[in-house]
Write a protein that binds this DNA or RNA. Structure first.
Length: 417
RNA sequence: GUGGCUGUAGUUCAAUGGUAGAGCCCUGGAUUGUGGAUCCAGUCGUUGCGGGUUCGAGCCCCGUCAGCCACCCCA
């Protein structure tokens, strides 16, 4: 049997109802917040992600699907959306000239990781980016937007974690101090943290090893190393959140895995996803556009994992809408009439279906029930002779004969209730 | 990339090393023009794949593939 590659899933209709809770909520909130959709490519030159995310990051160094095109250039399936949006923004000079622009995207991302709960090799994200303003309002806007999407989707039991990792200037001082702190306790570190100390000291702060937890308690806090401008920005973001009634938890241990963040970082987390506790995350990246060759442009954004949000909504029923009418017939002339009236109903905006095989009314009613039909329209020999249709309301069980000429009006008004 | 657990019908799961079964689903009937509930009947298998041990393997051993979970990392 042919199978799908590991970590990649087929999503059948029974899951679509629940996904639509999320995707519809996102689209609606993006509209209300004046974000415009951008469709970015599913693959880029590998260089886009190396430049965007940093070649030391795990995502770039070992989790990308890369391959060569026929000219020998290296391409990669996108592991995330921000780098592509920035590339597109810079490449299209028109947008780069606008004061602020707000984009959102929805689509699949690819990472060559070992699959587990809440972690797939092909997964779907929606995300938003604001270019052209360094104002803390937009940091707040990104978090408020994501919070509203989560609420509107029906999610509960989640928290917003907030931190600031400062700008490159103040981060240098912090990293120096952090390195000194941990270097003095080298023999207490787990093996992973020993390499973190060399490669990426910031990540020492989110080690999950029990033995490393006590070390964090007295570790220096980045918020006390922020320069005046970064501290003011951070305070302003918190002020907006407080005024907006968005609950958040300050977490000085929150550092993100991508190199491009400056100042604000945040995560929406839940206790119910095992190791994959974040279902949405983002932050500010004021230097990335410039790194891509654009003029200096501050920016802030976030991305959310649709499948992870879906897992959190699992106990909610996945409602599939069902059709308005199912048409039952007895074959021959009644089938021809059924096909005709089915087309007429559809032409008038009603969803309708039928089964061309003659199976007896029992089987057809059963199918109507399974398809979630509101009404069954019966076209048998009797109806054909009388010039009527019998319409049964599956919910109430009541049925009546309706003259053929007024079938549209009858069904339309019946379905309205 | 590392580790643990699990692979039996469409699905969820049974089956001391000795004839592969049940619930659900599906199809049909009870009800010859009417769904859901109930009852009855029926279809459904290279026990993931390849080797080995054994008189005999779904069961034990080795390999392999897949799934799940955890680490790592991340949405």
């Amino acid at each position: 049997m042919l199978t799908k590659p590991p970590g990649i899933e087929d999503i059948f209709p029974d899951r679509i109802g629940r996904r639509d809770l999320i995707v519809d909520a996102a689209r609606e909130m993006f509209r209300l917040y004046n974000f415009r959709e951008i469709v970015i490519p599913v693959m880029e030159f590998t260089e886009v992600f190396v430049r965007g995310l940093g070649d030391e990051t795990d995502i770039v160094s070992k989790e990308m699907f890369t391959f060569e095109d026929r000219g020998g250039r290296s391409l990669a399936l996108r592991p995330e959306g921000t780098a592509s949006v920035v590339r597109a923004y810079v490449e299209n000079g028109e947008y780069n000239r606008l004061a602020t622009c707000k984009f959102f995207y929805i689509g699949p991302m690819f990472r060559a990781e070992r699959p587990q709960k809440g972690r797939l090799r092909q997964f779907n994200q929606f995300g938003a980016e604001v270019f052209g303003s360094g104002d803390p309002y937009h940091d707040y806007e990104a978090m408020a937007l994501m919070d509203e999407i989560a609420k509107k989707s029906g999610m509960e039991d989640y928290r917003l974690l907030l931190n600031s990792i400062g700008c490159p200037a103040c981060r240098v001082n912090f990293v120096k101090e952090l390195t000194r702190y941990y270097a003095g306790r080298k023999d207490l570190l787990c093996r992973d943290c020993a390499t973190r100390l060399e490669r990426n000291p910031l990540r020492l702060l989110d080690c999950k090893q029990d033995s490393c937890q006590p070390l964090k308690k007295d570790a220096p806090r980045i918020t006390s190393f922020l320069c005046a401008a970064c501290a003011a920005h951070h305070a302003a973001v918190k002020g907006y959140l407080a005024d907006g009634g968005i609950a958040f938890t300050e977490d000085h241990l929150l550092v993100r895995g991508l190199d491009y963040y400056t100042r604000t970082t945040f995560e929406f987390v839940t206790a119910r996803l095992g190791g994959q506790n974040a279902f949405a995350a983002g932050g500010r990246y004021d230097n990335l556009v410039e790194q891509f060759g654009g003029r200096p442009t501050p920016a802030v954004g976030f991305a959310a994992g649709i499948e992870r949000m879906e897992l959190l909504l699992e106990e909610k029923p996945s409602l599939s809408p069902g059709i308005d009418l199912f048409i039952a017939h007895t074959g021959g002339d009644t089938l021809a009439r059924a096909v005709a009236v089915c087309g007429l109903l559809r032409g008038n905006g009603l969803s309708a279906d039928l089964d061309p095989a003659s199976k007896g009314f029992k089987a057809q009613f059963k199918k109507a029930d399974r398809e979630g039909a509101s009404l069954v329209l019966v076209v048998g020999e009797n109806e054909l002779a009388a010039g009527t249709y019998t319409v049964k309301d599956l919910k109430s069980g009541e049925q009546e004969a309706v003259p053929a000429g007024s079938i549209i009006e009858y069904c339309t008004s019946k379905l309205k209730r």
